[in-house]
Amino acid sequence: MMNTKKRGKNKYSTTIISSVLLILFFIYFLFFSNADWSLFKEQFLNFEKMEGRYYIFISPFFLVLKISFFSCFFASLIGLCFAVIRNYNFKILDMLITSYVVLFRSIPAMVLVVLVYFALPFVGLNLPSTNSVIMSLSLLFGAYTTEIFRSGINSVDKLQIEASKSLGMNSLKTMRFIILPQAMRVVIPPLTTVLIDVLKTTSIAYVVGVPELIARARQMEGVIGSVTPLIFVSILYFLIILPVVILSSRLEKRSRKWSKA
């Protein structure tokens, strides 16, 4: 009897302590910091002031979609090509691609975007800001997709490659008809994760003066004297990204089930 009582108490102790800490934090934040919550509605959710101005967000909205689409497209292209090349085991190319992956996995997105936009003009390469963002994001996420595609290609059973060779298929045909279709199934769930990251990272374009959502929101914030546009933009981002997040976790669950079976 004693024992069960004790066990029950222990089971909930971490939960209780943590929730008490959380609640204390919120109480502190709500009442004891000098936050003036009466201003909350007026400053943060003042959608009356936004009326008639929503059209301003239409073109930046599509710009964000455009940047993410092209970045994702080029990154997948880079990843696919490099992964296929690595599959053939040329020593020098292997080393080059590996160092590309390591290098671009280590550079912060912000640093690359700034570098491409502010440093390249010194050698006469004046990329428009949108293109420079697309270029940097493609290069960055190409490093991730290379690894994703590589693990996809590696996941295909070696016996199948031998079988297709003995059927007289050359290595290009084997790649095209045997390996890649099967690799796709493995590759798509992690690719959606990359898509989420790309969508989130497009917000960095704000620094190099791309007229995207945040830039417009900050302009409007100055005009109407309220933070509501920013809140609106965060909701917008949330609405763009959330479906992808849900899709990604579904796909991951399904692939886990599939690999278990």
């Binding site: 965060s234 949330f238 990204i241």
Partner: peptide, 13 residues
């Protein structure tokens, strides 16, 4: 929420 919010937006808010 954290998965779907860009860090830039959170910082600015």
């Amino acid at each position: 929420f954290c998965r779907a919010t860009p860090i830039v937006v959170a910082l600015i808010v």
